[in-house]
Design a protein around this nucleic acid. Structure first.
Lengths: 343, 343
DNA sequence: CTGAAAGCGCTTACAG
DNA sequence: CTGAAAGCGCTTACAG
């Protein structure tokens, strides 16, 4: 069907080419192609056929130059290999709509110089706006310098309350996790989490403590066990908790990696999940949750939704309808085999 | 330090603004800013100061329109959430250099219509070239239609030998894995891999068989055990292999997920890794390899390098220096605790 | 209904 | 060394 030969790319056709082939002026060709009313049907037909025949794709650069809008946005991240940027990016791409808005992706790799280079380049290319994605929920310094277009911060909010920031509600997520475990009939709940310097870790712990307090309970051990975001820490912490608090009946883990470690330790200690102990993870990272034994219940931060909302807010800001401040979006529980009601 | 207020974005300055402020013509301003020789030093200084003061960023759209080159490329993927696109993308971004070339990222989500929309949009934006990233090494149909710019296929090669494709050498990777196990003194080697419909799975198996044959050996069980790319399959396959072939002393796994399953099964069967049995995975996916017990030796496909080379080939093609055909890049062994020499 | 002309922001010969 | 003019590809009033 396709007779394409990528071996011999031809010069892109211009409106002048189309007009010439159709035997009209470029003004008329322009109107015909853009569906303006004042064109005779027969003429429009002739122009469209010429355009088709030449595979005419209107030069967006020329259009943008006239209209002062490019229909492009820049997406700045420092965490491409991490698992935060990608869902946000997909959500944003989704919200913009395929082809309507094009996204420049830039990874600064945590390097401030590199970030400056990228910002300069993006502004030169006249992006209509910028989305800045971070990998931690700790507020970050706003972009430096005079940015003549709207900026939205996704996942990692800006320190400046006048900026627009979209992130996940980690306090509420902590509550969700505990409420889920409570609804499974658990009351002796331990919270094993990661690096305490992360705001996300502290927020989840606070939400968990609040939810337990509301139920007249408290965490096993009286506090959150902070450590690192690793399976190894999960294993060690689980062993310690079981030894000191043999009546523990549930673990709320600060990440799926920690949860995997907890699951392994519990199996080796002869505690059945979910019969004896329920386990809930965090992040809902498929490669970890679906391969776990048993499959892992986890909290999903709906990062694609964060991206989608960020894109919408950016749109609104471009249109001049400015919101501002930090908007915290809800997380959700994804139930799998590691937690069951009244287990 | 930064007095920026992202709350009040100002209109982007133009060359006319700079020229006016410096008291020169826009032609002179242009020359001064672009380092052309024919400008008096004092004049140049004045122009540069004006530009600085106005945060002047030259309009790349206007420049591109003149020069017929945009300094942008499109990166088309269908596998953003997967683990193949991101490293390739990072490598490409790396090769292009921060700010010199900007990358439009488009995720088609496996939808042909969506892909067409993205291609149209990218061509409208006059990208200088296209990189198409796939998640499987099975050759894929080339992009449809008349693409007036060079295209490079990364990881997933094009079916058309006239196209430029860069991928990883999975046959050689199979040899590398076996050679590593042989050099650890292993001779009873099993190969547990994933979905047999993947060319990558078949290629790795072929390389493994070839390397063993060169050493006068063959795979334990006389063949590769194909299954799925999951931990569950790794666990089941390992149990089966150990039962039928108790003298097995090494596992070459088709993915790190499979390897994690194999490690778990071996531990539960009381086989020590790496003393009794060596295990090598594939993909070198950090979250799996570094959290494994013991840490997992794995094959790294150097996907960033694939991206870097793809970017270079695209550059060359844009400059008119066309290469063509499939270029297969070497993989490498990343040694960790799960394999040791003469264990 | 159709087309000549101006202009978006820039660069590049070409005069002065 | 400096500047007026043409032109990249398009759209949009404005005449005809």
């Amino acid at each position: 069907m396709s007779t394409s030969s990528s071996a011999s790319p031809s010069r892109a056709a211009t409106l002048t080419d189309v007009a010439r082939l159709a035997g009209v002026s470029i003004a008329t060709a322009s109107k015909a192609i853009n569906g303006r009313a004042q064109v005779r049907a027969e003429t429009r037909q002739r122009v469209l056929e010429a355009a088709e025949q030449l595979s005419f794709a209107p030069n967006a650069l020329a259009k943008s130059l006239l209209q002062g809008r490019t229909g492009t946005v820049g997406l700045l991240t420092s965490d491409l290999e991490g698992r935060f940027s990608i869902p946000v990016l997909m959500g944003a791409e989704d919200a913009f709509g395929a082809g309507r808005v094009s996204v420049f992706l830039c990874d600064a790799r945590g390097d401030a110089i590199r970030e400056q280079h990228h910002i300069r380049a993006l502004l030169s290319r006249r992006v209509d706006g910028l989305i800045v994605v971070g990998s931690r929920t700790d507020p970050r310094p706003p972009l430096e310098g005079d940015i003549p277009v709207p900026v939205v911060y996704a996942y990692a909010p800006s320190e400046d309350p006048r900026d627009i920031s979209i992130t996940a509600d980690n306090v509420e997520a902590g509550r969700l996790a505990i409420d889920h475990l409570l609804s499974c009939g658990r009351t002796r709940i331990a919270h094993v989490s990661g690096d305490v310097t992360y705001k996300a870790a502290k927020d989840r712990a606070r939400g968990a403590a609040d939810a337990l307090a509301d139920a007249g309970l408290e965490l096993v051990g009286g506090r959150t066990f902070f450590g690192s975001w690793s399976e190894g820490w999960g294993r060690g912490a689980a062993r310690m908790v079981v030894e000191r608090h043999p009546d523990v009946d549930a673990f709320f883990c600060g990440s799926d990696q920690i949860a995997r470690g907890v699951l392994d330790a519990l199996r080796e200690l002869g505690r059945d999940v979910p019969t004896d102990v329920s386990v809930i993870g965090f992040d809902n990272w498929a490669v970890l949750t679906t391969n776990a034994r048993p499959q892992l219940t986890s909290i999903d931060m709906n990062l694609e939704q964060v991206g989608r909302v960020a894109a919408k807010r950016l749109f609104a800001a471009i249109e001049g309808t400015a919101s501002s401040g930090i908007e915290e979006l809800p997380c959700r529980v994804v139930t799998r085999e590691s937690t069951v009601p009244n287990g």
